[in-house]
Design a protein around this nucleic acid. Structure first.
Lengths: 142, 142
DNA sequence: ACTAAGAATTAGAATAATTCCAAATTTTCA
DNA sequence: TGAAAATTTGGAATTATTCTAATTCTTAGT
């Protein structure tokens, strides 16, 4: 099993032919490689232009298709901030997103050790959380 | 000073001519009244159709304008869930939103007493949070 | 009250992210 | 190998929201 860890120029041919039950086509490999190559939060169109560098024939529709496949198979995380277009995030660990108002840059923010949702929110008995999104805005750091 | 508390059919003429430094025009009054009339989370278009009942000449563009004015003056809260269109919420107290996957309905969820952001997240020194949004999805209650 | 200046409203056009569509290509596996 | 299924593709369609320019309303000063 290969590692999907961050690397400067991930070689898409390193990915096995199937990941998490998802068939790894050339295009999906490339889109995944693009997202793993940088620890940022590109929009679909950014992914498209980056993918075109190594695969000039890829189409935007395919990028959308691939992103949706990768997201639904938990290989990539989709991030929605306010009304902006979706961004895609290579970091699969539990975290949330902070958008700096000055720079527009997005920072991953982790939870303090041992913080559990039930400790924070008043949820009625029997509630099952399948998806949680926390996003912040302001000035990040000083 | 009038109370903006929930009421079955808020009379827009009860609102003073200015609230939070915002001139209360006929249309803004009506849009605010529509939102206060029900404890739900209507989309702009829902607000539009509801407002048309009492004010048939109001336009959708005006509804958008009014909503943006009311939101920026903290009289109404804008709620963004995933990729859906914005919703508007009359509840100005600190809370977050839970969307039930079965019904699609949105529930307000409050924080447990004394929960502070700094206790939950690893934020670098000097960080200033101007906006926080927490949204959940799953089955609400049993 | 009257009027000029500024603000808000309006209808319709424009924008832009995303989804849809139908045809072509690729892959799978019997 | 060849049929069926899945994927890719380019372009069209969709849709929430924003923009525009003209009109109407409101306010303040006289």
């Amino acid at each position: 099993m290969i590692s999907l860890a961050q690397q400067k120029n991930p070689d898409p041919t390193d990915f096995p032919s199937e990941l998490e039950g998802l068939r790894m086509t050339k295009q999906r490999r490339e889109v995944l490689a693009v997202i793993l190559a940088e620890r940022d939060h590109p929009k679909a169109n950014d992914v498209f232009t980056r993918a075109q560098k190594r695969m000039p024939t890829i189409s935007l529709a395919t990028v959308y298709n691939c992103l949706e496949a990768l997201v639904s198979h938990n290989l990539v995380r989709q991030v929605n901030l306010e009304r902006e277009s979706s961004r895609y995030c290579p970091n699969l660990t539990d975290h949330c997103h902070f958008q700096d108002e000055k720079s527009g840059k997005i920072h991953d923010v982790v939870f303090k050790d041992g913080v559990k949702l039930e400790d924070i929110l008043e949820l009625p008995q029997g509630t099952e959380v399948s998806h949680l999104e926390i996003s912040l805005k302001g000035t990040f750091g000083q």
